[in-house]
Design a protein around this nucleic acid. Sequence first.
DNA 1: CCGCCTCTTTGACTTATGTTACGGTGCAAG
DNA 2: CTTGCACCGTAACATAAGTCAAAGAGGCGG
Lengths: 250, 250
Amino acid sequence: MASLTDNGALSPMVRKLAAWAALSPEDERAILELPYTVRSFSPGGYIVRDGDKPQNSCVLLSGFAYRHKIVGDGGRQILSIHMKGDLVDLHNSLLHTADHNVQALSQVELACIPHEAVKELAFARPTVGVAMWYDTLVDASIHREWIANVGRRDGRTRTAHLLCEFGVRLETAGLGSTREYDMPMTQEQLSDCTGLTPVHMSRSLKALESEGLVRRTKRAVSIDDWGRLAEAGDFRPDYLHVTMPGIPLL
Amino acid sequence: MASLTDNGALSPMVRKLAAWAALSPEDERAILELPYTVRSFSPGGYIVRDGDKPQNSCVLLSGFAYRHKIVGDGGRQILSIHMKGDLVDLHNSLLHTADHNVQALSQVELACIPHEAVKELAFARPTVGVAMWYDTLVDASIHREWIANVGRRDGRTRTAHLLCEFGVRLETAGLGSTREYDMPMTQEQLSDCTGLTPVHMSRSLKALESEGLVRRTKRAVSIDDWGRLAEAGDFRPDYLHVTMPGIPLL
DNA sequence: CCGCCTCTTTGACTTATGTTACGGTGCAAG
DNA sequence: CTTGCACCGTAACATAAGTCAAAGAGGCGG
């Protein structure tokens, strides 16, 4: 458990929630004073497994994680990607039993908060509670966009859309910009986000590159003309419910 | 606005929330005493449009509704189906601006509650608040399953899965059973749930029927062997987070 | 520096699903 | 009774995406 002296390990959580509601200084302090333990994971490590009954709600302090399900024939579908500040596991802990897996994508540091403490705080301080609720609602909104992405767009459009989403979210998290960002995912993982095969993901990326819409070096993505990529990806950021001055609307 | 004398128009909402948390009699009364107005819609009527700033959170009193998005090329993706007791619009009203459409599927009666009243109740009575939060989390869980369904299962499996989900949800809502239920959707609408074309939905349904997994007459569905249909649909109901004795686990 | 990973690219081929089109059925309105 | 409309079925054909396989391209440990 943390003492006040380690001074703000939970500040990424404050930053995230402050985007959703106007937190008072006391609200912020109450968040920072939540009890937690820090755990770290190597790439591929399981944070939660389908069927677990997690006792903690986890905040990502650094690194990336992803949620996924395995379907009957062994296929994997990635459901969402999480980054610094994200409340990775409010869903599973509040629902009592996990309905999907959460796995580390990179080296990950996690703050684990007993979910009873989270619930207490939510109802003791309505503003914080609204912010947390709002956060889970935004997650759901992203899920809806993914349903549409996977269900009704072709491969090239889907991957462009995904790259746009990453750009905006990384920028709002302070980890990059819509012009350039790092995203440590393999093409296989990207393909599992979009319901494609790895081969087809490779083809789609190649198509986007040869049209000059993105450049990639290793795991870094550069976007020279955001407008064209957003158009190719049928991307409008409304569903992310962020309003930051820096984000181009199209 | 309602007076106490119209006696329990919001009871479907009580029934729904009572499934998620142990409501006290006072909790139930507080819900029933929420202010509301009733509106009705004909099939196809818009309850909320993408971009609206709804002031109300709506409860479905009767009939069916669906949420959907229109993508760039005009394609439609249905995101979820709603039935009696569902809080159709907590998401959109709490997020301030709607990121998708909600439309009536059949004749619909709706109770519209000012969302400020909902929020106040949620924080005045934590048990009710938890139940509402939980409800939105279950919605998100269903969204995740749909991502996997659309992304990683073939047409026949997808449609079997959808038919299973309807069975379980209608049974828990008291509107049918996993052996037989009514669902007033056209094949075009079913295809928009699954990311298929209407033609292929027709093929998939035909396949399931010719294997003896379902029978359909008009808009009614009969399932003789739940186990076989669930297997064909790769369906396990965990993600619905219902625990009713009547629901076969496989 | 070598060898062994994992990841990516590419090609040839297959297949599930999309497209277009037309005919049938049932229901509702006049 | 007719007409029209919305939905459904189905056939022939087109194509996006999947599959299988093999060969580069890094990166990393020994």
